[in-house]
Amino acid sequence: MDALAPAAPVEHGPSLRQRLAARGFDAVTLLVIPAAIFSLLLFVYPFAFGFVLSFEPKAGGDWLANYRRFFSDPFLYDTIANTLRLAIPVTLLNLLLAVPIAFRVRLMRRQRLLTTILVLPITLGTVLVAEGLLNYLGPQGWFNRTLITFGLISQPLKLVHNYWGVFASLVITGFPFTFLLTLSYVTGIDPALEQAAATLGASAWQRFRHVYLPLLMPGFAITFCLSFVQAFSVFPSAVLLGEPAGVTRVISIAAATAAFEEYDYSMASAIAMIMGFVQLGIVLAVLASRGLFYRGPASGAKG
């Protein structure tokens, strides 16, 4: 009788390994670990370290001394205004130019040639653009010469080593970036939606206002944020093309000076944190307003 009795069922739940696998943790998931460790070590840790360091002033004093110094010294706090004075107009201009151009280019058959040309300044980078513009926009450069030849001006315009030099370099590198992002959003919208609106009696402006704009608003908000953040961190062109001790003394110059000329890493970290917070603040403000708009597929529901 005993011998025939079935073995008492042992309460074997699923093994730990099975339970983990059920939640998505198995050998394949572990492949993410090297990159995650790397990111913690070289991105999260430095950020945290810099954050803490910014509260440990080199010169001593209480934990807020760096921040108090930044916000009491006009030479330091003016850098925020200087940077915003460059970044906001440039970003708005780039976006305002990019939108109508993207709408036109969307209809083009051979977009690739134009996108390739526009990707040039992005790949060449800010240093080369700054170096090129230094000659090109200079008093003896081709730009001023052309204007004088056409009789538009009599004296060369001063376009380098001031605000406008940096502005021009931010347009040359920033516009393609803004445009290509905008174009990818604009082409993501089903053209049949515009056709439908047209057959329903909407004029070109009404189609833009009531169909494209609400669908594109989230994309425009993201484009604005990314373009703004790029412009806000302007550095090499502000030094090379601008007036790094004056109107184009931007916040990254202040941070780099603190780090590499004064060797005050604590202050440099504080400035980097302030720079991050200003960027974050503007991005959050823009993205929060994004909540007011439609979010979802822009392709005309499911096919």
């Binding site: 990111s39 991105f43 840790y45 430095p46 950020f47 370290f49 780099a256 440099a268 980097a272 991050g276």
Partner: peptide, 27 residues
């Protein structure tokens, strides 16, 4: 935690290099 991890990987692409570069250089 996958979404958090993706966000962690997204941040260095969204934050301009000069912003995280200074604390990174310090370390």
């Amino acid at each position: 935690g996958k979404r958090l991890l993706v966000l962690l990987f997204l941040l260095p692409l969204l934050i301009p290099p000069i912003t995280f570069g200074i604390p990174l250089a310090t370390v």
